[in-house]
């Protein structure tokens, strides 16, 4: 690394900033708050092509998820599951490497209504979140933020090395302006609302 360049760049920046008055930070943007973050999240996330499944009244979530995955088209045979997923949220299907899995299973740190996003910390395995064609994400009950700003304010207290915000399936319109899904990342992104309240929140 060139120490010289560092000093030179910083000196030139300092000289330029000294030549004009420093302008104040305008403070928070304060976007509108929503009364029902969960409903707002469902609306936004689905309008971006994401899918939401309610699992609030489900008993035996492991069996329930297994059935859901086997019912998909194409049927999910092997799964990749992040280390953060508690035993009761793991499907009863053979676990395979993420590159060969029909679905990846993760737990979100939180969801955000305003942008329709799932926040995925790298305490989970990134390949699980990205390589399989279907990504199923447990969203712990009570972990839906209204505003992105509030979510990021909390997140910064305990940031993992690489956080992903997933707000729908992978898509591109680079060929003939036609939208195609599943270009590189998952073509289906399913948020499951209503897992155990503490799941995934302790490891960020």
């Amino acid at each position: 690394m060139s120490v010289e360049s560092r000093e030179r760049i910083l000196a030139r920046v300092a000289e330029a900033t000294a030549s004009r008055a420093g302008l104040p930070h305008p403070g928070a943007l304060e976007t509108p708050l929503t009364d029902d973050p969960e409903a707002a999240f469902v609306k936004r996330f689905t309008s971006s092509g994401g899918e939401v499944v309610e699992a609030d009244r489900v008993r035996g979530r492991s069996v329930w998820l297994t059935r859901l995955l086997r019912g998909l088209d194409p049927e999910v045979v092997g799964v990749a599951v992040g280390p953060e997923v508690p035993p009761e949220f793991r499907p009863r299907l053979p676990e395979v490497a993420a590159a060969h899995a029909g679905a990846g299973i993760s737990v979100a740190w939180a969801a955000v209504a305003e942008s329709g996003s799932l926040i995925l910390p790298s305490t989970g395995t990134r390949a699980v979140q990205l390589l399989p064609p279907v990504h199923v994400v447990w969203v712990p009950r009570g972990r839906v933020y209204g505003r992105l700003e509030d979510a990021l304010r909390e997140l910064r207290r305990n940031l993992s090395a690489g956080v992903g915000l997933h707000s729908g399936p992978s898509k591109s319109a680079d060929i003939g302006r036609t939208v195609v899904t599943g270009v590189h990342g998952p073509g289906r992104c399913m948020a499951v609302l209503g897992s155990h309240a503490s799941a995934g929140t302790s490891e960020t």
Binding site: E114, S117, A161, V163
Partner: peptide, 22 residues
């Protein structure tokens, strides 16, 4: 016109947690 990009990466540094394959 999207509310946010489908994917946002927030990269702080090299992988540090045991499960992290970054």
């Amino acid at each position: 016109g999207q509310p946010i990009g489908c994917f946002v990466s927030l990269i702080q540094g090299p992988a540090a947690d045991p499960g992290d394959d970054g």
